[in-house]
Design a protein around this nucleic acid. Structure first.
Lengths: 155, 155
DNA sequence: CGCAATTAAATTGTACGCAAGTGAATTTTG
DNA sequence: CAAAATTCACTTGCGTACAATTTAATTGCG
């Protein structure tokens, strides 16, 4: 009922402005995060998406490409070249699963595992940059998770 | 004082998980938005970043590249090729400013102006997909704006 | 069992993002 | 006023994103 009303209701001009779009708030904040991470991650030689892959691997050090893709919501078209770069940099290795030769198992090298020692420093730095309380973080995270799941199920 | 404490405090393992990162919530929601927009924007032949540029131009139909960049927080390295594509598609035109030949003024063509008629449909569709109330939208938008400004000033 | 459908990863092509560098125009400064 | 510094847009090169296709392996079904 409410949805139907909303659908046929006039959208106020003010809501149509770029700055007032929720999508743009998310889009531009994502870029702001990437830029804030850049100087921090440069020191360890990672890009931001590569850092996300490392986070996944630090949780579980051996995973097929598909599992990583599901956690990051990225397909092999994005991950294949990214993982190739991580491998060239000596942080991971890739081996075909002998049980199922279609799958490639990604695993941490010693160097990749060791890099986790930098995690506290990275998180502290980005926490400073974000400059909001743990409570605020949790609030935003929760709201975004709901939003993301709505958007995903709509497609 | 509180900041100092936070800096030296142990970070709980749970907070180090990919799924619990605020940055990842923002990152993955941004992708979810792009995917939700895709089928809608395909119908009018725009990509999502191109749509953002059109939003800026529907507010003010003649702007230098730099002004667009400031609103979207994008540099000319990103905008130049994007604007070239919008021009090829007949939605905008580009002319050197005669007062300052360094500047390129971007302006809407009739076709570009006319496309604004689709805006209500687009916004209604994405509103449905986001599936949250206007109140929720405003809340998230506000929180993200604060976060974005923190991140930007930290760099 | 045997072939069709499915699955996993990689590849190709297009479009961002962004750093770094180029070249032309304008401002600032000595 | 002229040289130096700055500004603006463009270009180049690298790294994502993602659709669509390809190849190889596995599963399912008749």
């Amino acid at each position: 009922m409410k949805a139907h009303l909303a659908k046929t209701m006039e959208i106020p001009e003010e809501e149509k402005r770029l700055e007032n779009q929720l999508c743009f708030a998310v889009y531009s904040t994502a870029h702001a995060f990437t830029r804030a991470y850049k100087p921090i991650l440069d020191k360890v030689g990672l890009t931001y998406p590569q850092y996300l892959v490392m986070l996944a691997l630090w949780e579980k050090s051996e995973q097929p490409v598909k599992a990583i893709g599901e956690q990051l919501d990225l397909d092999s078209g994005t991950l294949s070249p990214l993982l190739k770069r991580l491998e060239q940099n000596g942080l991971i290795k890739r081996t075909r699963d002998s049980r199922d030769e279609r799958q490639v198992i990604v695993s941490l090298t010693e160097e990749g595992r060791a890099m986790r020692n930098e995690l506290d420093t990275i998180m502290a730095a980005i926490g400073q940059a974000a400059g909001c309380t743990l409570e605020e973080m949790k609030t935003i995270r929760g709201l975004l998770k709901g939003l993301r799941s709505n958007l995903a199920s709509a497609v």
